[in-house]
């Protein structure tokens, strides 16, 4: 945990450096934006409400509580009742799904959707810095705000999205928009971010994502809204991210 705190402090320093200079590196930008989405934090918890509008299945609402520390996270469903208690555990690249009434946790791949409408990669904390090679494409504006535009290319076979074009606010170093592409280069999702939440950590007031609106570009009517609330820094015991705890 101490090592994780040092890494996190280094990320904050990089973030500060990025503010101080005119052109932070793409990696520095990613480190800052990951933190805004819970990635690489020593210990953070938030509540997530996912509202999915799909022409095939109507409107579905799912509520989760997410706990994350470094590469590890566990997302527990609290609503609806039929899925309550279901937990998605991610330890590094390994993923398990468990529910108290299943009695045995299931190893799953990141492609398997076990938590409702959103992809597993959208629910857990974001670690783009670890998963993607980044390069600065250009500078642009998004809704009038100057933004860096990064191209992220998956560097492993584990990533949820193969290629991402990522708009990051120049002034605030927070994500504002993303386009997600398939291997064939086809745009299949876009996301718009709002970062009105705050996380009190180590005496600092850090921005944190408050809303992520994901639109399916293949089917325009398919929209998922992820709303984040009650964000707080926490220390978790070592057994907080154990497979055995998934079914108990």
């Amino acid at each position: 945990m101490i090592r994780l705190r040092k890494l996190f402090a280094a990320a904050l320093l990089l973030s500060a450096m990025a503010h101080a200079t005119e052109a932070p590196t793409p990696e520095e930008i990613l480190a800052a934006t990951d933190r805004v989405r819970g990635g690489g934090m020593p210990g953070v918890q938030w509540n997530l409400t996912i509202t999915a509008n799909d022409p095939d299945s109507g409107t579905n609402v799912r509520r989760l509580q997410v706990r994350a520390a470094g590469d590890n996270s566990v997302a527990e469903t609290t609503f609806p009742a039929r899925a309550a208690g279901g937990r998605l555990l991610q330890l590094g690249r390994n993923m398990w799904y468990g529910r108290p009434d299943l009695q045995k946790a299931v190893s799953i791949s990141s492609r398997q959707k076990m938590m409702g409408p959103a992809a597993n990669g959208d629910i857990a904390s974001t670690n783009y810095l670890k998963d993607y090679d980044a390069r600065l494409l250009r500078e642009d504006t998004f809704e009038g705000e100057p933004a860096y535009v990064l191209e992220l290319v998956g560097r492993s076979r584990f990533v949820t999205y193969d290629r991402i074009i990522y708009w990051v606010s120049r002034a605030r170093l927070v994500p504002v928009k993303a386009e997600f592409y398939t291997v064939s280069g086809k745009l299949f999702k876009t996301a718009v971010f709002e970062t009105d939440n705050h996380l009190a950590y180590d005496g600092q007031d850090l921005p944190f994502v408050s809303r992520m609106t994901i639109r399916d570009e293949i089917n325009d009517n398919n929209v998922s809204v992820l709303e984040y609330s009650e964000i707080r820094a926490r220390d978790f015991p070592l057994d907080a991210f154990s497979v055995a705890s998934l079914t108990r």
Binding site: R93, S107, S109, S110, R111, R157, F158
Partner: peptide
Amino acid sequence: GTWTYSSAWLFY
């Protein structure tokens, strides 16, 4: 043991 080979493959 379980080996997560990729986002799609698991071996165990």
